[in-house]
Amino acid sequence: MSEEAKVVTKQRVAGRPKLLVRQTAGFVYCPGCHEPITARAIAEVLEEAGMGDRTIGVFDIGCSSFLLGLLDIDAVLTPHGRPPDMATAVKRIYPDNIVFTVQGDGGLLSIGADPLLGALTRAEKITIIMLNNAVYGTTGGQMAPTSLVGQKTTTTPQGRDVIRTGFPTHAAEMISTFKGTAYSARGAFNNPYNYERTRGYIKTAFQKQMDKVGLSFVEILCACPANWRLSPEDSLKWIEEKMLPEFPLGEFKSVDKIE
């Protein structure tokens, strides 16, 4: 490893991206939550690209709104489920800025399905980052569109029953089927290897946007220990044993040109 690479690695492991706000008070996250590390990955990618001061973040209601406080970039908070709409307008006005949304699975696939479909249909040059924790987080752990079959939540106390509540939605696969999609991938933050991989997905997604190819999408499997009623450590195991078989990681679409 070259000296330069060593410094970069040390900075990556022990350092802190400048775009990541140091919160001394009002840190709202539950222990073991993967949202702060999502913020870190986004901050690292933006900083490396030198785009921090030319980026506008669009954050949804729910736990994803807390990212407003963690990332040192211009940002807007939307009504629940509407980030793709707002990002559409912001991107049309500032076509050379990076405009991205961060949303939960409920915010994108349930209440926010209409703006998602609209943005996909229009092939908006925005990036959507969806945090999939298989529950509604902020409201206390109700069933989400991504809840696993049999998963116990506060609104499926006997476990998710396919007869009454159907099956989990696979966002990354679904979004990859749209002509206007430039990039669609699914990552996870359950171990360092997957962190690096997912960080790479975010980087590629932003690059596709900067190249004005089409809509880019990254789904990230995130731990929610508080609502899963598991310890942070057991939550990592749950991602590996339960979520990964249902939601495989990887890139589902990556094109450089849409014709």
Binding site: V76, T78, D85, M86, A89
Partner: peptide
Amino acid sequence: NMLYGAAA
């Protein structure tokens, strides 16, 4: 909501 984004 696009109007919201533009107004922002």
